[in-house]
Structures are given as C-alpha cells and as structure tokens.
Nucleic acid binder design. Structure first.
Lengths: 147, 147
DNA sequence: GTTTTTGCAAACCATTTGCAGGGTC
DNA sequence: GACCCTGCAAATGGTTTGCAAAAAC
C-alpha cells in the first residue's frame, strides 16, 4: 500500500536476472520511474519522444514484457479497456487505482481469500487464480474540492 | 450463479430500449445464445461464417457494444489479454471462469464489499468500483480425470 | 417518409516479427 | 568472440469509421 520509487530496482532486477543491462532498457526503466501511477506503452513512447530519447517502439514493448515476466511490473486492464502497467513489488497482489490522477496503491489480500473460498463453495468451481482491481479516488484527489 | 439461456432476453432488451430489432442484431443474439461460457468477437464472427449467416464484421462489433451498454453482456479480460464477452444479468456480480472449457458462472458479492471497505480504510482511497474475475475449473472439468 | 442500421472497405491503433548491425558480457 | 539486444520497417490482428444503400418504425 505504498508508492515507492522503483527505477533503481528495475535496473537491478534486469541485471540480476541474467539479462543485459542495455541503454534502451535503462531508459525504459527511467521513464517508468519518472511516472507515478499507471501508464500505457503509448504513454511511455510519448515520454521518450518528448525527451528525445532514442528508443525503438519494439524495444519499449519488449522491455515491458520482460519486466512483467520479472514481476516488477504488472499489467492491469482499465475499465476503459486500455492496457496499462503499474510498477510493483513481486509479491503483492491487488491494485487500487485512482480514476482522477492514475495513482496506484497496492493492497494485500485483506480477506479476499476467504471470499474466494466462499465463491468456490457456492459454484463448485475449483478456483486457482483471481484478479481484483479497484477504482476510486486517492486521498489527494478526494480532498481536492468536492467535485 | 446460474447459466441461463439469454437469447430471448437479448432480443427483448434491444427492442424495449428503443433500438431497432433488425435481422443482424437478432442473428448476433442467436449466436450468443448458442454459445455457453465466454466468447470473443472473433469467435462469434467465425460462428456466423460457419452458419453462412450474412453479418458484417462491423455489425457484430456494434451489436456487442450495444448489448454491453444495455448490461446484458459484460466484457471480461482473460488472463491471456484477450477480450471476451459473457452474457449475464444486469446486476452487480462477478464471474468465475473455467480455464478449461470457458464455462462461466456468476456469483454475487459474497463478502467482497467488506473486503473493499477494508482496503478503503487501509489506503485512504475512496473506492467506488471494483472488478473481480476468478479463474479455475468448473465442476465438470474438475472430475474429468485428475489432469 | 424519416431515421436508424447495415455491409463493405478502408482506416486505425496497438503490438509483434524478421533481420542485419551494434553492444554487452 | 559469441550471443543478446536494438532499431527499423513491414506484417499482423483486432476494432473503428465513412458512406451509400436497405430496413425499421
């Protein structure tokens, strides 16, 4: 449930997982670190262009995939249908997403397992995974004028 | 938590919501009714072609959007990243999706609200929506050989 | 008759892939 | 030096759009 800078971690994770620490990857990691909240591949690409960084479209996608595999990035589907990514620690589970500013907070299961168990009981399904995404307004955006 | 035939409903809903009940829409509704579990736009299109029904690609997408707006269809994002649709009642509920056969069961909140409330408390966010998708194996696929 | 829908094809957008050159270990 | 990674541009796959003809009300 915290929002930490991840850029250092990102680069590290790449290196330690037996992947080469290249300029392109470092740039993508920086761009991600410079953002907070969720972001799409397109936004990252735009950021890169804005900063006049030379990164190929494909490399951005490839790096995003790689980081997702390493579990330092997670892909979420926004209610709009867009695919976004959020940086997060490799254990954690669910995301609360601010629909005003895009800020993301992480929360642990907080009893969700029990709910899943209950649903398992009711449906007869054997449930092995679940995805929960919550949307609302972050503390900052809440106070900012009733709106 | 049931799986009912929806085709009749689908057509009805269209008509009563001030939309024209056209051949194309009726065909899409039939195709949806003939499926159980989730399906993608592409699958529906394939079904139509298989049955030699004349429906334009665009009409399928347009009808799908329309039905989604009417809340008789819901769009879910499979873990694979695919977009699928499931027919369902226009109330708040969640889906349990069988990863073997694609069968979908509906469940109501079963205590999720409390979990959400807890997460609200912990993060300071004001949560107004959530999406939960559960994946596993349905009763039928469970019994079908340990696998 | 007016307004909504359709089907088609082209347009679009996001993501992927093949490949030759360049960088990293 | 070997292998991994990059950038590019072209290919792809899914979804949308513009428009004139056709259907619904």
């Amino acid at each position: 449930m915290t929002m930490l800078p991840h850029q250092i971690t990102l680069a590290n994770d790449l290196a330690t997982a037996g992947h080469r620490l290249t300029a392109a990857r470092r740039r993508v990691a920086d761009l991600i670190g410079a953002r907070d909240g969720h972001f799409t591949a397109a936004e990252l690409l735009a950021d890169a262009r804005a900063r006049r960084l030379k990164i190929g479209r494909a490399s951005v996608f490839r790096t995003l995939d790689l980081l997702t595999e390493l579990n330092v990035l997670e892909r979420v589907d926004l209610p709009t249908g867009e695919h976004a990514y959020v940086a997060c620690r490799p254990a954690h589970h669910h995301h609360v997403i601010c629909r005003v500013c895009g800020q993301v907070a992480e929360v642990d299961d907080a009893g969700l397992d029990d709910v899943a168990a209950e649903m398992e009981r009711r449906t007869g399904f054997e449930i092995d995974t679940h995805r929960l995404e919550l949307y609302g307004r972050c503390p900052a955006c809440r106070t900012e004028r009733a709106r």
